[in-house]
Design a protein around this nucleic acid. Sequence first.
DNA 1: CCCCAGGCGTCCA
DNA 2: TGGACGCATGGG
Length: 219
Amino acid sequence: MSTADLLAEIFQRLFSAYGPQGWWPGETPFEVCIGAILTQNTAWANVEKAIKNLKSAGVFDPDSLLGLGQSELAALIRPAGYFNQKARKIRDFLVWFRENGGFEAMRKAETDDLRESLLSVRGIGPETADSILLYALGRPIFVVDAYTARVLARHEIISSDADYDSIQSLFHDNLPRDLQMFNEFHALFVRLGKERCRKREPLCENCPIETLPGYPPVP
DNA sequence: CCCCAGGCGTCCA
DNA sequence: TGGACGCATGGG
């Protein structure tokens, strides 16, 4: 079975098992950007509390957030954890956002250029940048996350120390550049991981991809 | 009490 | 260039 067929098979099984995930769980492109930073190594339920705090305080827009001091911002996003670090990251992103013409300019930019520019912001790494590109701007980019790497490594499709770009290339080089498919695929990996794939446990039995053609069963 | 979450930057070999 | 470590709250 080719890599292309294997990845397509994984997608089909996850989609059949779980259906469309309706991502991103936020209402606006701006909310996607802030949520993408807040959710770094953090449970989404805690991110929701932080976003709710910002909305309740009436400051959930770029200018208002920039008007807050870093410590005030940190206090509001406290439930999301790492609040001092994330307050600075949000500020740095918003400064970049303002100085680079906001969404209007972002929508005009080439995907590769925009990705590089996003990565230049302190606190935005590859997963955060790609989440913004895919879910805020609709670019057909595959987002790699810890669940994806863990699941693929357990199936011995990649090595356990594969880096972000190599994993992303596996998807980019072997699947059609389909926006809706990439949107669902990442969300489905997260769904699978949340439900069944804790760090210290193998994939559970009756998992949609417990066995895959040509690959060893997960222990 | 324990482990872990939709990462990232820094430091050090 | 890559592996350890700090960052932090809240849920299971």
